[in-house]
Design a protein around this nucleic acid. Structure first.
Lengths: 122, 122
DNA sequence: AGCGGTGGTTTACATCCGTAATCGATATGA
DNA sequence: TCATATCGATTACGGATGTAAACCACCGCT
């Protein structure tokens, strides 16, 4: 669960986060909308994810049903924190400042964030 | 310039972002405070960074002086956007919401961000 | 009973990454 | 001038990653 999930594996995770449990064939079908992978490739990625314990599987008749073991929420948190730690000394402020500066936020978006922050204070 | 910089290479970049130009030996010296690498390793990383055009070098007598070609600012922007795109649909709001929720922000930090956003509106 | 599909497992293979050791040219000190 | 230290370049090598093909077992159909 603590090993990193690779770029390609992530595409598989996204499918499973969207809907689970799924068979390997189902996963391949859905992932095909994004990437042009053969069924074999998806099967490899699923095995690797199972080995990493990021995905679990249980027998259903003669096929496996795969489900995520790592929650998207948790993974996103890890990756976000990784970025914040690496580049912004672990501080959220500089990240927000940086991104806000880069992608010019609409007044509306700013208002939304302000609202969120206001709610957090209580 | 558009290739990704690996984790190990990043440690070298951080040194060069801090101070440049530097010789390979100098880089190795400073990087040694963080990681326990041999001079050979640092030289390899520098070559790879030069190949990726993330670092430039110019002859100074019989040794090279290395300098970053990619600015930290630009790189951080790219990586941040990558994260935001991959996990938050390219939207800053959800990222902030997510991080704010995770690492409980102090009222003070929230106030700082609010100030920043207020300034942006003008 | 034999065959084709379906599913998981094993093997493959090029590239990248982490981490060096070695090589060849040169500069320097004895 | 000769050995030595230095420096960049070349080569190494195991593990991860992207991308699959091959293999083997089993089920359903003919």
């Amino acid at each position: 669960m603590s090993e990193r999930i690779s770029e390609a594996e992530l595409a598989v995770m996204e499918v499973l986060w969207e809907e689970a449990p799924l068979t390997a064939t189902d996963v391949a079908g859905r992932v095909a909308r994004q990437r042009d992978w053969s069924l074999a490739t998806v099967k490899t990625l699923l095995s690797r994810l199972v080995a990493k314990e990021a995905v679990g599987h249980h027998l259903d008749g003669r096929r496996f049903l795969y489900s995520p073991l790592v929650q998207r929420e948790a993974y996103v948190t890890r990756e976000s924190r990784r970025l914040v730690d690496r580049f912004f000394g672990g501080k959220l402020m500089p990240l927000v400042a940086h991104l806000a500066e880069q992608q010019s936020l609409s007044d509306d978006e700013i208002a939304q964030i302000e609202k969120l922050l206001r709610e957090m204070k209580s």
